[in-house]
Amino acid sequence: MAEQTMVAENARRAVIEIDGVAKTYKTADGEVPSLRALDITIRDDEFFVIVGPSGCGKSTLLKMIAGLLPPSEGEIRIGGRTVTRPHGGVGIVFQSALLLPWRRVLANVMMPVEVKGLPRAEYEQRARELIRMVGLEGFEQKYPWQLSGGMQQRAAICRALVHNPQIVLMDEPFGALDAMTRERMNVELQRIQAETHKTILLITHSIPEAVFLGDRVLVMTERPGSIAAIYDVPLPRPRTLDAMGNPAFIELTRKIRRHFDSPAAESAAAAHL
């Protein structure tokens, strides 16, 4: 009942609940604490962005949400159900493109459709549209090695979206792209989210990208990662690239950047910002 009033308050349902989740890797050389206990609630239709220094456990968190890695402590719930294994309604873009070298681009994009046994013809149409959207038209029948790193990453984005998942997890999807393509992809992603009301969790090293795309931006601390701050982004949607000149935008990026100004974090952050 308390939950219902919460729902009313937020006007939006909690979709991903991260409840006291921590991760310590047990390796041959001992334990590697990677994440300290986190509490995060990501709501329906929300664009949630995580920024943090390299090695703070962002990818680890994403894999746990995806059900590929069990948390050492705490619990993750998607739509109220505890995550113990991969969830069908989730699309994932991994940090590396991970295209299968033996499949051509279209077949790579169609892989989730094949695995799930969805109607082929209907989804192939959709796959082709996605491929066109990310600017890979004409490359459908090429092998991954015939594509540049950024093109491979764009194909991987299509693959994450092809089965129309309600939740999309993206681990630095635009890391391999040039600045111009990256901005175009940001605008596209914002449009997709606005049209389809997906819940998107995006990990990035770029603070302007985080502020441009996010409804909320979570800033993480050095390893083992914990929450340094969560900011609401007060910019109205749809945002155009001009929004980057907006004083509120500049103010927020400066605030976030200050988290990384400590000497320890500086080198790690500098490598990526």
Partner: peptide, 14 residues
């Protein structure tokens, strides 16, 4: 086989 590729397939509920 790369564990990441297996993860990729598992994430699709393969």
């Amino acid at each position: 086989v790369e564990p990441d590729m297996v993860d990729l397939a598992k994430a699709m509920e393969a």
